[in-house]
């Protein structure tokens, strides 16, 4: 099998795997980064969201052969540069967003990409960006509030 060079959270990995393996399984099974979750496997729920060159992408539906062309950031690397939590992570804790917590890494990765592209989204913009992420516990009202809060932190 070919060897792929993956750049994940600023670190280089050479992995000898099937190029059709979805990035999700390379992250979880090969690199041991378990913060990225399987929710649906078909880009319906966003639990597996990572950043490819800073843009939110569903790792269940991006092959390793494609992902290796981008800088990959996972929930484990969202705050890696300073060690301090990302404003979204902070706002999520402050407002007690998580219930079971399983979808929240994906929610936070989508929200972080949103704030990068649009530092002050209104409710409609938040809904448009976040509607691909399902939360079965129903934490949506607090997710909205936390994104607004993080947007405030990010600009202050």
């Amino acid at each position: 099998m070919p060897v792929f060079q993956l750049n994940v959270n600023g670190k280089g990995y050479a992995v000898d795997i099937d190029g059709n393996m979805p990035l999700l399984w390379a992250l979880r099974d090969i690199l041991g980064l378990k913060g990225t979750k399987l929710g649906c496997g078909v880009s319906q729920c966003g639990a597996c969201t990572v950043h490819l060159d800073g843009v939110a992408a569903r790792s269940c539906s991006v092959d390793v052969g494609v992902a290796c062309l981008s800088k990959i950031t996972t929930i484990e690397g969202l705050s890696y540069d300073g060690g301090e939590l990302h404003p979204c992570q902070k706002a999520w804790v402050d407002l007690g967003v998580p219930q079971c917590g399983f979808c929240q890494p994906g929610q936070i990765m989508t929200a972080a990409a949103l704030l990068r592209a649009n530092p002050h989204p209104n409710d409609e913009e938040i809904d448009a960006a976040m509607r691909g992420n399902i939360c079965r516990c129903g934490t949506y009202p607090r997710i909205r509030a936390a994104i607004h809060k993080a947007a405030g932190d990010a600009t202050s």
Binding site: R28, D29, G32, L33, K34, G35, T36, K37, L38, T74, I75, E76, L78, S79, L85, C88, Q89, W92, V93, G96, V97, P98, G101, F102, Q104, P105, I108
Partner: peptide
């Protein structure tokens, strides 16, 4: 207190599929 919130937002919280037992097959 909310003991798990910080782990949950960092992807550190351990769910069923996240346990790594050496030598494990899927």
């Amino acid at each position: 207190p909310f003991v798990d919130a910080s782990d949950m937002v960092q992807g550190k919280a351990v769910y069923g599929a996240d346990v790594d037992v050496p030598g494990m097959l899927t």
